[in-house]
Simulated scan of single mutants.
Amino acid sequence: MKAVTKLGIFAYLLAALVVALDQASKFWILHVFQLPLKVTVPVAGPFHLTMVWNRGVSFGLLRADVDLTRWALVAFSIIVSVFLAVWVRKAGRALTAVALGLVMGGAVGNVVDRIRFGAVADFIDVSRLWFPWIFNVADAAITIGIALLLLDMLMQEKQGQPVAQKDAI
């Protein structure tokens, strides 16, 4: 098996940082600030804190109110994270490594919540910017990571390089 590239190691460290930031922010919201459920607290401008428990996937989509669905989401997230961890071992581009590190870290951060609480703690509320969902650090990392991964693929295609050539499994 090929050794992990420096970019792969960077992606693993970034994923660990995302998990740490995500879990630290959730600890602060739940145990230090003790934000009550569905109470909105203004922070600055359009940024508010509103505590909700998300039983679905990112941004509350595909609700998982049944325990079997919760564990299916846990299993799916772990499988995706392992797939990405294998993929990023051979990362040859920084943008790929950053994107995959963000997605892996976000997925693991939300898996921790599903295992511990049965749902994901969401609290970042920017609905005053016409963004209707309440989310967390892990959701933001996943979203940014996917956007960067799409950008990376578009950049490869623009350069005439097949997308799967360099960083595919």
Rank of each mutant, 00 (worst) to 15 (best):
residue 116 R to V: 13
residue 161 Q to N: 06
residue 34 Q to W: 00
residue 106 G to D: 02
residue 10 F to H: 04
residue 158 K to S: 05
residue 100 L to A: 09
residue 131 F to C: 01
residue 35 L to V: 11
residue 48 H to E: 10
residue 164 A to Y: 08
residue 140 A to M: 12
residue 153 M to K: 01
residue 128 R to Y: 06
residue 32 V to F: 00
residue 85 A to H: 03
residue 84 L to G: 01
residue 134 I to Y: 04
residue 161 Q to T: 13
residue 104 M to Y: 02
residue 166 K to C: 00
residue 84 L to Q: 03
residue 123 F to E: 09
residue 16 A to T: 05
residue 94 A to H: 05
residue 122 D to S: 01
residue 107 A to C: 01
residue 109 G to Q: 05
residue 44 A to L: 15
residue 160 G to K: 03
residue 17 L to E: 04
residue 136 N to K: 06
residue 94 A to G: 13
residue 9 I to V: 15
residue 42 P to D: 12
residue 68 L to A: 14
residue 19 V to S: 03
residue 72 A to N: 04
residue 122 D to I: 01
residue 151 L to E: 00
residue 23 Q to E: 10
residue 71 W to L: 03
residue 67 D to F: 09
residue 168 A to S: 13
residue 110 N to E: 04
residue 139 D to E: 04
residue 48 H to V: 00
residue 28 W to M: 11
residue 118 G to V: 06
residue 56 G to A: 06
residue 99 A to P: 06
residue 152 D to F: 07
residue 169 I to A: 09
residue 79 I to C: 14
residue 148 L to D: 07
residue 30 L to Y: 07
residue 36 P to V: 01
residue 61 L to Q: 11
residue 69 T to I: 10
residue 79 I to F: 15
residue 149 L to Q: 13
residue 79 I to G: 13
residue 39 V to C: 00
residue 108 V to K: 02
residue 63 R to Y: 04
residue 81 S to R: 08
residue 145 G to Y: 01
residue 150 L to Q: 05
residue 135 F to L: 04
residue 96 T to S: 12
residue 167 D to K: 13
residue 84 L to W: 08
residue 25 S to Y: 03
residue 15 A to V: 07
residue 115 I to F: 14
residue 65 D to N: 14
residue 117 F to G: 07
residue 19 V to L: 06
residue 105 G to F: 06
residue 21 L to G: 12
residue 26 K to S: 09
residue 17 L to P: 00
residue 100 L to E: 05
residue 60 G to D: 08
residue 27 F to V: 05
residue 96 T to M: 15
residue 68 L to K: 07
residue 30 L to P: 02
residue 136 N to W: 03
residue 43 V to D: 11
residue 60 G to T: 10
residue 156 Q to T: 11
residue 4 V to K: 12
residue 75 A to C: 09
residue 55 R to S: 13
residue 1 M to C: 02
residue 9 I to R: 14
residue 88 V to E: 04
residue 69 T to V: 12
residue 155 M to W: 14
residue 154 L to Y: 12
residue 125 D to W: 01
residue 155 M to P: 00
residue 79 I to D: 00
residue 135 F to R: 07
residue 138 A to F: 01
residue 66 V to N: 11
residue 111 V to I: 08
residue 71 W to K: 05
residue 111 V to A: 02
residue 166 K to I: 04
residue 146 I to F: 10
residue 85 A to Q: 04
residue 16 A to G: 12
residue 15 A to G: 12
residue 105 G to H: 05
residue 56 G to H: 07
residue 36 P to N: 02
residue 97 A to R: 02
residue 60 G to K: 09
residue 93 R to G: 03
residue 96 T to D: 13
residue 12 Y to N: 08
residue 154 L to A: 14
residue 54 N to D: 09
residue 86 V to N: 10
residue 46 P to Y: 10
residue 100 L to N: 01
residue 67 D to P: 07
residue 10 F to V: 11
residue 132 P to V: 03
residue 46 P to K: 13
residue 46 P to Q: 09
residue 109 G to S: 08
